[in-house]
Design a protein around this nucleic acid. Structure first.
Length: 309
DNA sequence: TTCCGGCTAA
DNA sequence: TTAGCAGGAA
């Protein structure tokens, strides 16, 4: 397996060396933990939204044990509106495991990384490669698309098969470890900047040859995929409910949550229950709702300021 | 396969 | 209006 005719490895590596974006988590001296935080944040979330939050997190929780010392609620608040807040919860649990079982250091071994909460096939290899320079295929949606086009001549990757994709990319990597690691980063960068889902800027593409271009840029033949709607879904309701708790400082009465989704009480209660099940929120003994880990905290003293009454 | 946020470029 | 975004887990 290789890029269509010529092997575009040298061109791609050179392009990356000269054009890689100056992302904060690519700075020298960034640790495995900090890389891991960036990777989890970047799951389904654009770079521009992640960068400022990541800077705050690196300053606040520079090592796993620091985060393990904070409550889940504190982490959820700091997560803000990045979306998919279960990621934050997993990262917190991951920090606890790293502090307890890994001497506060993110492991470099892919199999060890895969045991960590919130770390899947992509993230494990991304950390092994970007932080520790391992020669492993790093396959995300960008790489999948680049390989589909440049190698297979298709606009989009078909059914994502992790096994096949890993083998595809593995075959593209140079033998030399350092060059292979750079190659993985370059493939991702190419998909993120040049060969994007919306448009392929072939004029600026460093690859000397592309199977998709050679084939005349054929459109997708795949059936239109089902769109995962958002408006009116439980996801939207969960977001609104969680936003109330994130914005406030302590436990709140259910009525405070009810008002953000009055149109469908059944759906609202279902969403609220799912947040409890996910461990994102908790219920206090007196029936109030709070962010996870904050229900036991003394709510703002209601009667202490009796002088004002 | 489906569910899980929130934002924005086109 | 919506497709798409450095995915993971059940």
């Amino acid at each position: 397996m290789s890029f269509s005719k010529g092997n575009g490895t040298e061109e791609l590596l050179e392009w990356y060396r000269d054009n890689a974006r100056d992302l904060p988590w690519r700075r020298p001296g960034v640790t495995g933990w900090q890389i891991l935080m960036s990777e989890v944040m970047l799951q389904q979330t654009p770079v521009s939204r992640v960068a400022p939050i990541w800077e705050q997190w690196v300053a606040r929780w520079p090592v796993p044990s620091a985060m393990a010392g904070s409550s889940q609620g504190e982490v959820l608040r700091a997560w803000g509106k990045l979306g998919y807040p279960r990621r934050a919860l997993r990262l917190h649990e991951c920090a606890r495991v790293l502090a307890a079982d890994f001497d506060d250091v993110v492991p470099s071994d892919v199999d060890a990384l895969l045991t960590l909460p919130g770390v899947g096939a992509y993230t494990a290899r991304a950390v092994a490669c970007f932080c520790y320079g391992a020669r492993v295929p790093v396959v995300d949606t960008n790489v999948r698309r680049v390989v589909a086009r440049a190698v297979h001549g298709l606009v989009d990757a078909g059914n994502p098969s992790t096994t096949r994709d890993l083998a595809d990319v593995e075959a593209l990597l140079p033998t030399d470890t350092a060059r292979a690691a750079t190659m993985s980063a370059a493939l991702m960068e190419l998909g993120a900047v040049i060969c994007t889902a919306r448009s392929a800027d072939c004029a600026r593409c460093p690859l000397p040859d592309c199977a998709w271009v050679d084939a005349g840029k054929p459109p997708s033949t795949a059936a239109p995929k089902k769109v995962q709607k958002f408006a009116g879904t439980d996801r939207q309701v969960r977001g609104k409910l969680l936003d109330v708790l994130r914005a406030g400082s302590g436990a709140v009465e259910k009525a405070r949550l009810d008002i953000v989704w009055p149109q469908d009480p059944a759906q609202r209660d279902r969403a609220l229950d799912s947040l409890l099940v996910d461990g994102l929120i908790e219920q206090t003994d007196d029936g109030l709702f709070a962010l996870a880990g904050e229900g036991a905290q003394p709510s703002p003293p209601r009667n202490s300021s009796t002088a004002t009454r």
